[in-house]
Amino acid sequence: MARSPLDPGVLRLAVPRGSLFKDSIDILEKVGFEVGELRVNDRKLTFQVGEGRTIITTRPSDVPTYVEYGASDVGIVGKDVLLEHRRNVYELLDLGFGRCRVIYATPADRDPETEELKHLGIMRVATKFPNITRAYFESLGKQVETIELRGSIELAPQVDLAEGIVDLTASGETLRANNLVERAEIADCTARLIANRVSHKLKAGMINELARRLREVTDR
């Protein structure tokens, strides 16, 4: 008989490549995953990391997708991605690392929000997070046009593509370098452990154990 893709004997974990990658494999190593190969091989996508455990590495924003569909049982992902994509997954644990904030910023020399609103009514906001942006401005009762970009969001106000941006910031350095000022914090984000709805029950033992040990090594 073919092994079921959610074989109760195997725990499949999705880990994001990118800024959370190093902290993720560090914390997994602390709870007993054999992550040596992940540190040295950045081309491979699937790894055997001990008896009955596999890891896949994906784009950060794809982690909740893999987990929602049950292609992975659990995953590590930033809260910003969860807020943006609203996938139907369990959010089990705040892992504490990867802290960053989703903020709203505009150029330092003027606050175009008030300027534009006086004249045009609708202002343009450039962002990688269209859903977070819409929800935030809707909650304020303000109408904005979201302009979705893939990167270098802080460029948009300088070339008059947008009056403001919604973006991630850790130190605020990029904002300052581009003459932008934070006007509001929208969300405070850290890495989270998430789980598939069905695995959460069918593999409750393994997932509870993983969450318990991660909680122990998380400095919170």
Partner: peptide
């Protein structure tokens, strides 16, 4: 209650 199968990521 929910009916779950290992072959499907949702109930």
């Amino acid at each position: 209650f929910e009916a779950l199968s290992g072959d499907l990521g949702f109930p």
